[in-house]
Design a protein around this nucleic acid. Structure first.
Lengths: 194, 194
DNA sequence: CATCTAATTAGAAATATATCGAATTTAATC
DNA sequence: GATTAAATTCGATATATTTCTAATTAGATG
């Protein structure tokens, strides 16, 4: 449970349009055009907000023919409510540690990635390496199957040494490989620094 | 621009600096300079954030000589956690009612308290009275024992008629008294408006 | 009332965000 | 493969936000 997540969650909920979308989806799934219509906004605007809602996993989607239906991830809301109510039960120090962790993480990412998202070099310290990789795999889609070439291409967006990084992805359980097909593991399986 | 206060709460929590301030204040009250020091930011920046935190009633303040101490309003966090967790159980109209309730509560507090935290007068309507008292007892520490004089002093910060309010605290089960010693009750025992 | 300390305001720079219209992509279907 | 409906990306613009320094205010105390 990172602080970042809490802050991102609130930042995301801190916009009236997005809260309106969430309340709409609380009643049931809807497709983009329907949302746009009900809110009197254009499709690109809805896409923009759905992207943010997806980033914090508040919504997920399911395709039916030509139409993508967006669903509210209700359990996340419950989970976040829990986090919030526990915010105070926690001792101050613990909380401050969480904050510090999150800041450190941010700093590492800023240090190792250029402003336009390239990885400057692969950290040798395990902890930093994991943070850097974890950041990178954000760009992969959950549930999607990639062949090796796709994975290479994906990694090359960040760094030329795709072979090493691809191997690291497997070693640290970010992904698994079967018959040359790669897929993202659930986050619980990822290697975590002690 | 007049935004929903619910959204304002989320927006306010959606900033890492402010969450850090909240986490510091969760440990106990602090004055501005101390916060600035701990966070490595300047005083004006802290003022800026405290202003926002105050706007959503997440913090309140109390002056001691030259120094203003900022306190966390813990019950608001719990309250918002509650709102969030119930967001999904409810639907449609019900949800809007909840939002309305939350807004009404804020409004009542704003109506009956001055900007610097004084109680203008004791509401006669039971519902409003309870909301106003509930807000006031936020300033008392859970588990701490107070003698009558301390309680009087505490209440006098808000209103001159400490005797009436002290009595109300007991009647409505915010506190209990034993041998002239007062202590906060667990929140479950507090009187709640129907 | 002069002086001190803490807090706030004012103003500016850098960054981020919400929204749109136009162009492009995606996936189903003919 | 061409067509179509939906979603997304791109680029632009207007508005907000965070943070700073410098100047000002508020309140306590000698």
């Amino acid at each position: 449970m990172q602080l970042n997540r809490l802050v991102e969650f609130y930042k995301t909920m801190g916009d009236p349009t997005r809260v309106r979308i969430v309340s709409l989806l609380a009643k049931g799934p809807l497709h983009g055009q329907a949302i746009a219509g009900k809110l009197g906004l254009t499709a690109p605007t809805i896409t923009h907000h759905l992207k943010k809602l997806r980033e914090v996993h508040l919504v997920y989607e399911r395709r039916d023919k030509n139409t993508i239906y967006f669903y509210l991830n209700s359990s996340l809301i419950k989970q976040q409510a829990e986090v919030l109510s526990q915010l105070l039960e926690k001792r101050g120090e613990e909380l401050e540690n969480m904050v510090e962790d999150s800041l450190e993480r941010q700093k590492i990412i800023e240090n190792f990635y250029t402003k336009d998202g390239k990885l400057k070099n692969i950290p040798s310290q395990r902890k930093k390496k994991l943070i850097v990789f974890e950041h990178m795999v954000q760009g992969l889609k959950k549930g999607k199957k990639y062949d090796e070439k796709e994975i290479n291409e994906f990694i090359k967006q960040f760094h030329e040494d795709y072979a090493t990084i691809r191997r690291e992805f497997i070693i640290n359980h970010y992904m698994y490989r079967e018959n040359g097909i790669y897929e993202l593991n659930p986050e619980e399986m990822w290697a975590k620094p002690e």
